[in-house]
Amino acid sequence: MALNVLVVDDSAIMRQMIIKILTMSGIPVEEIHQAGNGQEGLQVLESRWIDLVLMDINMPVMTGEEMFTRMRANPATKDTAVVVVSTDGSATRMETMRRQGAGFVHKPFSPETLRGMILATTGVSYEQLSGVQAVPSDGPDF
C-alpha cells in the first residue's frame, strides 16, 4: 500500500522540506501533490484521490483550520487522514482538531516525529504500508 499525499503550506521551502522528509522516512508514497493554501488544497481534493493531507494552519486565502472543517463536512473527505504540521502551539486549537481525528506535529519537527504521527493518524503499521509480511514463528507463543 502506497499513499497519495497532499502537502498544504504557503511556504514552498517548507513544502519541499516536508516532501524530502516524507520520502526519506521509508513510508511508501505513490503521488505527492502540493497546494499553497486551504482553498487550493480543497481543489486538489476534488480532483484527486488523496490518502493523507499534511497541512499548515496559518495560511493566506484559507487557513488550514477552515480547510479541515470543510473536509470534515464533506462526505467524500470526512475520513481522509489529516496531519497538521504547524507552528501553532495552542492547546485549545490542537485539542479541537484532535477530537476530529487530526494528528498534530509542531514545527520544528524531526523526521521521526513526522513519520510516527503519519503512521498513528493513518492507522496502519509501517509493515502494512511497506508490504512487509510478518513471518509466523514455529516456536511456542509466550
Binding site: N58, T87, R93
Partner: peptide, 21 residues
C-alpha cells in the same frame, strides 16, 4: 516558526494566536 514557538511562552499553551504571513 520562532514566533509560533515564543508566543506560548508569554501567553500560555491555551492561548490561540493568528499569525500573518
Amino acid at each position: 516558526v520562532i514566533c509560533g514557538n515564543v508566543l506560548p511562552e508569554f501567553a500560555g499553551n491555551d492561548a490561540t494566536f493568528n499569525l500573518d504571513a
